[in-house]
């Protein structure tokens, strides 16, 4: 793939991922909730998804996912998940005087991101041996 095609694929995937993330945020946004559930959800879901794509690509012989990798992984999953807003929300919880909630947010996030990517990888490998 030429360089500009990789950029176009990542840009398109990231545009889609970021707008889906915003949709999730608008749907789950409730003013009385201090806990950033929407960002937690997109980051866990995006980690699961990138694991699934990677797992599928590693086992698939036809290379269907591998060809779409820039769009799906760096693009869609990369734009869907966000580290900067996760950081800002943690800082926001601290500013609200909720240090334990902030610590809980970071700990729960990290644990679920890593579980998500691991489970996604297993699911992707399983799917590839069946249908790949």
């Amino acid at each position: 793939m030429t360089v500009w095609r990789a950029y176009a694929a990542v840009g398109a995937g990231s545009a889609l991922g970021a707008s889906l993330r915003y949709q999730v945020a608008l749907t789950l946004m409730t003013s009385h909730h201090a806990f950033p559930w929407a960002t937690l959800l997109v980051n866990v879901l995006g980690s699961w998804l990138i694991g699934a794509f990677a797992g599928f690509a590693s086992r698939s012989e036809r290379g269907r996912v591998a060809r779409w990798q820039p769009f799906l992984m760096a693009g869609l999953c990369g734009g869907f998940t966000t580290f900067s807003l996760f950081g800002l929300e943690t800082w926001q919880l601290l500013s609200l005087g909720r240090p334990w909630l902030a610590l809980g947010y970071v700990t729960l996030s990290l644990a679920l991101w890593l579980c998500g990517v691991w489970l996604g990888q297993r699911a992707g490998q399983h799917a590839a041996t069946r249908w790949g």
Binding site: G46, G51, M73, A74, G78, T81, T82, F83, L85, V117
Partner: peptide, 8 residues
């Protein structure tokens, strides 16, 4: 920024 690539 990205969490998915970091996790992977």
């Amino acid at each position: 920024t990205t969490v998915s690539t970091f996790s992977l």
